[in-house]
């Protein structure tokens, strides 16, 4: 009889209480999973965006502030070019270097992308005068899902120009 009572009370614990507890637990677990995945998604997209912005800005700064490496890269073969720069001095665009950059961008887009440090992204370089007239354009015409455009002011043939580099994915 005592054994029977024990058995009966044990059976009660496993029924409604357990089921309710399990439901509450699963509900709580699903909420935790939902929010945690959102948290990770948000964090990863933030870092991806930051990487896009940083690399675009660095690539543009390197272009308008340096001569590139080697400094006479416009006379070198593409594998020997370590960094592109279209400036004769910081902020002064050299028209010969710009012309070479436009040509290489057209003939070997992927190499230029990698050398600029934008291997994960596509890019488009545009140079406009301050009236908005296009002076030069290079890179891809495609549209990306998300993009970032960085701009710098420089002088080209003693005229102020807006040099913009847009990277997109």
């Amino acid at each position: 009889m005592e054994w029977l009572l024990l058995k009966k009370s044990k059976g009660q614990v496993f029924s409604a209480d357990t089921l309710l507890g399990l439901l509450v637990f699963l509900f709580a677990l699903s909420i935790v999973f939902f929010y945690t995945s959102q948290l990770f998604e948000r964090q990863s997209s933030f870092f991806e965006e930051l990487e896009l912005k940083t690399q675009t800005f660095n690539a543009l700064s390197s272009l308008v502030e340096t001569k590139g490496f080697p400094s006479n890269w416009e006379f070198q073969n593409i594998p020997e070019i370590k960094a592109f720069g279209i400036a004769s001095s910081p902020g002064i665009v050299d028209s010969a270097k710009l012309e070479s950059f436009l040509q290489i961008s057209q003939s070997d887009y992927d190499s230029v992308r990698k050398t600029l440090g934008l291997s994960k992204f596509n890019y488009r370089l545009s140079i406009n005068d301050l009236n908005g007239e296009s002076v030069a354009i290079a890179g891809s015409d495609a549209k990306g899902i998300f993009s970032f455009k960085a701009s710098r002011l420089a002088l080209l043939n003693n005229e102020a120009v807006l040099v913009s580099l847009e990277a997109f994915k």
């Binding site: 002011l153 420089a154 002088l155």
Partner: peptide, 28 residues
């Protein structure tokens, strides 16, 4: 995470663009 922002990026842009503006204005 919401508080983390890339506002430092705007500062870098402002800094570069402001020095560019003055340089271009003087050189021209």
């Amino acid at each position: 995470i919401s508080r983390v922002s890339d506002s430092g990026f705007n500062e870098s842009f402002l800094q570069a663009f402001s020095f560019d503006s003055l340089k271009v204005l003087e050189a021209s």
